[in-house]
Amino acid sequence: MKRRHALRALTGILRREMLRTLRQRGRLLSAIIRPLVWLAIFAAGFRSVLGLSITPPYQTYVLYEVYVVPGLAAMMLLFHAMASSLAMVYDREMGSMRLLLTAPLPRWYLLAARLLASVIVSLPLVYLFLLIARYWDVRPPVLGYLAMFPALVLSGLMLGAFGLLVSSISTQMENFAGVMNFVIFPTFFASTALYPIWRLAEAGPVLAMIAAWNPFSSAVELIRFALYLRFDPVSALVVLACLVGFFLAAVVGYDPGRGLWSRRGGEG
């Protein structure tokens, strides 16, 4: 693999991803409105019901809106990853995925480039959301926005790699819709995005255990800590390990010799 060729391909994939994202206004709009609805309606309603004790990384009592914002940022990444994964399944059923896979570059590289491009285009929206959230008095330290960048990238990659894996094993769109329901909602609700672990433990130890083991929780905490200028090494390790695991499994799924395609075909 020549470095210049690889770089040009990455740039091309990124440019395509940006153009596609910008032209899908509806998706763009719903991606920013979704977390705002959660923040403006759900969080406002819960504010009075849900008392929060001091939970790291916060050094004082915080409003529920403040607690929930990093979780909502992670939710944006999760939805984006799943939408991008759906686009991959769509591309594959429609055939345009073949164009990517017939490029004269190693397949793992093409998949990684696609993954990275997808994460990069999702980040401006997350920052836009965080900016708007300041209106609800969610005002983390300014440096926190910078510090959370690597946390967002790493979390986005991990969730995107999971989406890639799902797309490699679901051969039909119909299956995929089911997978979305079974993946997105449990992942989101059984995590620390909306409630801290100790709150979940009060509801039930099983739920708390699931949330503790849920890699999405690690992504949320990694982002939360980074936003308040702290580093959560355990979450970082979990996210990194999951990224590597999901990506390697996805590469196997797309492998010309071992993947599902070679066994099922999918086209005449």
Partner: peptide
């Protein structure tokens, strides 16, 4: 044109 540019990039064209 954008479709063709994408393909060109995948094949490493300047």
């Amino acid at each position: 044109a954008e479709n063709l540019r994408y393909h060109g990039a995948l094949h490493g064209l300047a």
